[in-house]
Computed example of a mutant assay.
Amino acid sequence: MVEPLDTLPTPCLLLDEARLRANAERMRAHLAGLGVTLRPHLKTAKSLEVGRIAMASPTGPATVSTLREAEFFAAGGVRDLIYGVGIAPTKLPRVAAIRAGGTDLAIVLDSLEQAEAVGFHARASGDPVPVLIEVDADGHRSGVAPDDGDTLVAIGRALTEGGAELRGVMLHAGDSYGLRDPEALAAAAEHERLAAVTAAGALRAAGLPCPVVSVGSTPTARFARDLTGITEVRAGVYMLGDLFQAGVGSVAVGDIAVSVLATVIGHQRAKGWIIVDAGWMALSRDRGTARQAVDQGYGLVCDLAGRPYPDLLVTDANQEHGIVAVRAGSDAVLPDLAIGAQIRILPNHACATGAQHDRYHVLDGENRVTAVWPRINGW
């Protein structure tokens, strides 16, 4: 199929395939140069077609953030997955069903209570479900402190004695999202590496297995200089890019592969507003760039070819209405966009914006739609 943009119903989600492929190859080459495996996180993409571009092979490896994603990618032939969110015991039957279908799905936990529940499940089911212990790289969210060897070993022993498989440790340096300076980001990546190696060392010193040492976030993956002792890196948003990651410095605005197509539906000329049919239901409520040096509102506005207008933002959003205006304090001029004209909006957060849509309209190098790739949502 080849379809011009102006025939699409709006709002809808666009994906520039050339930018996607370039982003995937850039990260793959960077990590190959550091001697580690890339395990792409598919929580942003939520698409089998995108996953096949990012993964080393059609069977993986990959990371997911919901069991719905795990089921979807397993049904699509992916056989090596990590479910990267701490396990709730009530979800273990779904994990078992995915594993019974032939996919090696590993789970994550950070407490003795979870480990005991997994051990009980392993004994009852006869399935030695593989587990990674989550380690806290930087106080951002979940995980065992890397120097808390007693807790790490207690969890590891509860797993192995319970009949589960202790596969290793995993970390996510979430505080890296608040950085911008390349040196600070490189330091965060090194801190993450040291935390991972320290935790792995505590398990091994106690005679416990730790074959996998898994780290990753898009900023630390992008700025890592040395990954000695690490076996794999997980990252995801680098594939599509977004304005938040551009604010961090992980991608350039010109690397952002995803955008929302919208149509002009009105004007408030006295206020300097253009009204479009993409509100927060199409763009999401995410305002993460408000905490950065450059606030991008609800998204950066581009022409139909994907070229940003000078200082033109979606400055406010209602459910189905977006308000487009020039950035406060800028001397840029509001473009003359007639009713029915189309724009493209680069998102603050690709994960959040993508979650509003059930498909990608895939663009070729001439901004023509050449395919539609389904996305999945839900848990």
Rank of each mutant, 00 (worst) to 15 (best):
E165T: 15
L208T: 11
A164M: 10
V169F: 08
G249T: 02
V237H: 14
Q245Y: 13
P211F: 03
A188E: 13
P209E: 01
D242F: 02
Q245C: 09
L152Y: 02
L159T: 05
R225W: 10
G149M: 10
F244D: 12
Y238W: 13
Q245D: 13
A187Y: 04
M170W: 03
A184C: 01
I274Y: 07
D150M: 06
T151G: 00
V233A: 08
P211L: 07
G201D: 08
H172D: 10
G254E: 14
F244P: 00
W273T: 09
S217D: 05
A235P: 01
P209M: 09
A196S: 00
V213W: 08
Y177F: 14
H172E: 12
G168Y: 06
T220I: 10
T263H: 07
C210E: 01
H172I: 12
R222C: 14
G247N: 12
L243R: 09
D242C: 14
R234T: 12
E165W: 06
R167W: 01
T151M: 14
L261H: 05
T231W: 09
L159G: 05
L159R: 05
V169I: 14
V248H: 08
G162K: 10
E192T: 01
G156Q: 03
L179A: 07
I275R: 14
I155D: 03
R204H: 11
R222Q: 15
S250L: 01
H172Y: 15
R193L: 05
A252H: 14
E183C: 09
V260L: 02
D242P: 02
G216P: 04
A252C: 12
V153H: 07
P211Y: 10
G156H: 08
G272P: 02
V264T: 02
A189M: 08
L227I: 06
T231H: 10
G216E: 09
T228H: 10
A246L: 03
A199Y: 07
P182V: 07
Y177W: 13
V260H: 06
S214N: 15
T198Y: 05
V213A: 01
T220G: 04
T160R: 08
E165L: 15
V212R: 14
V169C: 07
E165S: 15
E192G: 03
V276G: 02
G249W: 05
A270F: 13
A278Q: 04
A186Q: 07
S217N: 12
E192Q: 05
A199G: 08
H172T: 03
A173P: 15
P209W: 02
D150V: 12
A252T: 14
A257Y: 00
I274Q: 00
A164G: 00
G229P: 11
S217Q: 02
L185M: 12
L261D: 00
V197L: 05
T220N: 00
I274T: 13
G272A: 03
T231F: 04
L159D: 05
G168W: 02
T220E: 02
A186M: 04
G247K: 04
T263Q: 15
I275C: 11
I275V: 15
T160K: 03
H267N: 09
V153Y: 06
G156M: 04
A262K: 05
G272H: 08
G272N: 08
I155A: 03
G163I: 08
D181F: 00
S176D: 04
D175R: 13
V233S: 02
L240S: 10
